[in-house]
Amino acid sequence: MLGTLGRYFNLFFITLFILVGLSFVLAFFFPGDPVFNLTGMSLEELPTSAYTKALADERWFVAFWYYVQSLLDGSWGISTITGLDLFAEISTLLPATIELTAYATIVALLVGIPLGFWCGLKHHRKTDYAFMSISMLMSSFPIFWLSLLLILVVSLQLGWLPMSGRLSLLYDIPHYSGFILLDIYVSDHPYRQEALMDALRHMILPTLSVAFLATAVFLRTTRRAVVDVLEQDYIAAAQTRGIPFWKIFLRHIMRNALLAVLPLLAVQVSTLVTNVMIVETITEWPGIGDWLIQAIYERDYSAIRIGMLVVSTVVVFVTLLIECLSKLFDPTQEQFS
């Protein structure tokens, strides 16, 4: 078990190192001055330090060393367009993205996995076919179109929910953790209850758009896993031992099916994040996806460099975490390590 943990730690740090290296190298590939791309400032504007000196002398390997140091320090440079500190920017943006992703994932898991179990147990019956067809339809929606349709119908046509943003401008909630629900909860705003409701109303559309697609995928994955487990000999063997079906379901089917689903969820993380980023731009959710796409429109290379590093680090971390967990939970996987 410690071995598995160690291996994944290793893998994560090697990957992180590759990503940091990539972000450094990208500054040379992006148009314009590499120093400008790395720090957001020209050489003259930079405060004198060993890092500046290495950059000025074009001793790039030394500069890379200082670059890693500066990343660890939290001095990530400034945006070339707005001149804002990137570390501060991202620490407000990233929680918003994580928040949206988390809610969408939770909704999708809560709906998709139980439905998947149900369809798997009823496989090759009418309900199963119905749900399979529906999920096939659901998973074929282009995310941006779906999100637009929802906005057009629910916000514009029916006027039920706000169209964009995260919170109405009426409420001024101080930044605390970056997670809006938590921030509202800990703030001492006089209209806290109303603010909370408003935040929730803003959240529904983007969450549903992302969860819509993810639910379909989770449902199909789970259903397949359940059907596969049901065909195994040990289920028939447990039945011949006269164990009631609900016990077999709880102890054997559920466990093995979930173990099979878990590693497949890891593959979904990157798709999920792409979808979240697209939905952010459409609903103007103030997350890192919206910000990155604005940055590319404005050719803010310093921001793209750090945004790419942060998003890919988070995604790789989550992916590896899920893989590591599935390795730890699944006793049969150890033999292949």
Binding site: L26, F29, F30, P31, V269, S270, T271, V273, T274, M277, I278, G289, L292, I293, I296, R299, Y301, I304, M308, V311, S312, V315, V316, T319, L320
Partner: peptide, 14 residues
Amino acid sequence: AIPTLLIAIIIVAI
């Protein structure tokens, strides 16, 4: 593990 959109952003930037 890197999202497609991110790769696209990098390629577009270059």
